[in-house]
Computed example of a mutant assay.
Amino acid sequence: MQGNRKAQLKLYDLYADAMYSVTCRYIQNREDAKDVMQEGFLKAFTRLQQYKGEVAFGAWLKRIIINQCIDTLKKRSLVYEEMNEQTLTIIDDDATWEVHSDISKQEIIQVIDTLPDTYKYVVKLYLIEGYDHQEISEILNIPVRTSRTQLMRGKTKLKNILNDHFKHKIS
């Protein structure tokens, strides 16, 4: 299919809306998001021979698009704080993850976007995209332990912001 413009156009038409939505979760400016999505599609089209059919094509493409977003953000000086062993106290206790039921999914996503970048992208990749820590580690080029720590800290910060927001919302 590489080089077959009609087939590429069909793939683009089939996946463009979904990939644009994914891109917009990382790139806030809509025009920039379109550019990043286009770059991701170009990268995918040049790598079509690497697609082995082990996962759905949409999942393979989504990974490329997310990597393109992350690469773009890194170029904008996204820096991850390297964690050392003393810093690593992982308590990934989802039992403590409770926010008020009146808080909408959209409000949660808006609050995630306000998190510091070092937390925001790990939280998005884990909670929204469904990647595990090994995959996040590969996508962001960070150690797995850093992914775990950033997720724990990001979720804690997210929970605190949401709970504070809800208190003000009903006051």
Score class of each variant (00 low, 15 high):
K6D: 13
N160M: 07
I103E: 14
Q8H: 02
I91P: 03
V111H: 03
Q110H: 12
S137K: 01
R145G: 12
L125G: 14
M152F: 11
D93G: 07
K167V: 14
T89H: 05
D13P: 00
S21T: 11
K75D: 01
M19L: 02
W60T: 06
M152A: 09
N141C: 13
I112V: 10
A7Y: 14
K74C: 00
F45L: 04
Q38E: 07
A18F: 02
K155E: 10
A44T: 12
K43V: 12
I65Q: 02
S77C: 08
R25M: 11
K169I: 08
K74M: 00
K167Y: 05
F45K: 04
A56D: 13
T87D: 15
K105L: 06
W60I: 04
L14R: 10
L48K: 02
L125A: 11
I142G: 11
K52T: 15
V55E: 13
Q2S: 10
S171I: 08
E85D: 08
K62R: 12
Q106S: 13
K10H: 09
K6H: 08
E54H: 03
A16R: 07
Q28R: 06
L73G: 00
T46C: 11
I70M: 11
L73I: 02
I142A: 15
V36C: 06
K34A: 10
M19A: 01
W60F: 07
K159Y: 12
M37L: 15
I170M: 06
W60R: 04
T114M: 10
F41D: 14
D13N: 13
H133D: 12
E135K: 09
L140W: 01
E82N: 13
I128Q: 10
N67A: 13
I66Q: 09
I161G: 07
Q110Y: 03
Y12A: 09
L151D: 03
M1H: 02
D164Q: 09
R153T: 07
D92S: 05
G154M: 03
G154H: 01
A59F: 07
Q134W: 04
D94Y: 11
C69M: 03
H133Q: 05
D113K: 08
N29T: 03
V122T: 06
G154I: 07
N160T: 11
L42G: 14
L78S: 00
I66E: 14
Y131N: 08
C24Y: 02
A56T: 02
Q68N: 05
N4H: 07
G3Q: 01
S137H: 00
G130S: 04
E135A: 14
D113M: 06
M152W: 03
E138N: 14
R153V: 04
L73K: 01
I65Y: 05
G53L: 01
T146Y: 00
F41G: 15
T46I: 15
L14Q: 11
G40C: 09
G40V: 10
N67F: 06
Y20K: 05
D117N: 02
E39P: 05
A95P: 01
G40Q: 03
G58D: 13
C69G: 02
A95T: 13
M83D: 09
L9S: 12
T72A: 02
V99L: 15
T89R: 11
P143V: 00
R153D: 06
Q134Y: 14
Y51K: 00
D113S: 10
I66T: 12
G40M: 03
I109V: 09
I139G: 07
